[in-house]
Amino acid sequence: MSWTLKFWDSTVGKKVLMALTGAAGFVFVIGHMAGNMQVYLGRDQINAYAHFLHEKAGLLWVVRIALLAAVGLHVLSALQLQLIKRAARPVRYQKPGIIQATPASRTMIFTGLLLAWFLLYHLAHFTWGNAHPAFRELDAYNNIVTGFQHVPSSVFYIVCMVLLGLHLGHGGNALFFSLGLVHPKYRQAVRAITYALMLLVVIANISIPVAVLAGVLKI
């Protein structure tokens, strides 16, 4: 077996891939959040940003394909590992117990699958527009505000951002273990920074539908 296949075939190799693709995803959501924040700078600013991205179509597609590949690998590995994990305990405990594991760490597969589904919805909502009641090509400001004025959509977004937070909170820390990047000197700092970034992403993203519903952002 070639060394790449061998790596892919091992549970440790798959976890490394999940860590790398997860890290890419983490970086992306930070960038995505930063871009979104321009909505607070007014319609012109965020729409100019949308135009700017579209003008760099080549680059945009490279990023999109890379992200798609990352998500694909992340989900594929997760599903394969899930099968391995289930098979590893064919008989479950009748009286299960947990000592210290956080709910977030134990529900990664569920939060992950929900987020994958959310991702499709999010694309349909704001990129393709087919799940949007009043979608206007390249008028990001309009799409955001009209989209979030629909209360169920906003609630759904807020719930999904909480899930994203749980997923990033465990994943963001675990990926350092999966990559072997653990050192007692930096342990506290890595933890603190990961959680801070996670909270920043979640709070900032949630602030948008909240701001729309509160009437701070309006047409």
């Binding site: 976890k15 590992l81 000592i99 210290q100 594991a101 760490s105 990559l179 072997g180």
Partner: peptide, 27 residues
């Protein structure tokens, strides 16, 4: 099965072996 780094192993370990060893293996 594979490791999801939730730390139950280390918490149950009668010798309290640290999760850091898992990071070392991965590295």
């Amino acid at each position: 099965g594979s490791c999801t780094l939730i730390g139950e192993c280390s918490a149950a370990c009668p010798k309290s072996i640290s999760m850091d060893s898992i990071a070392r293996l991965n590295g």
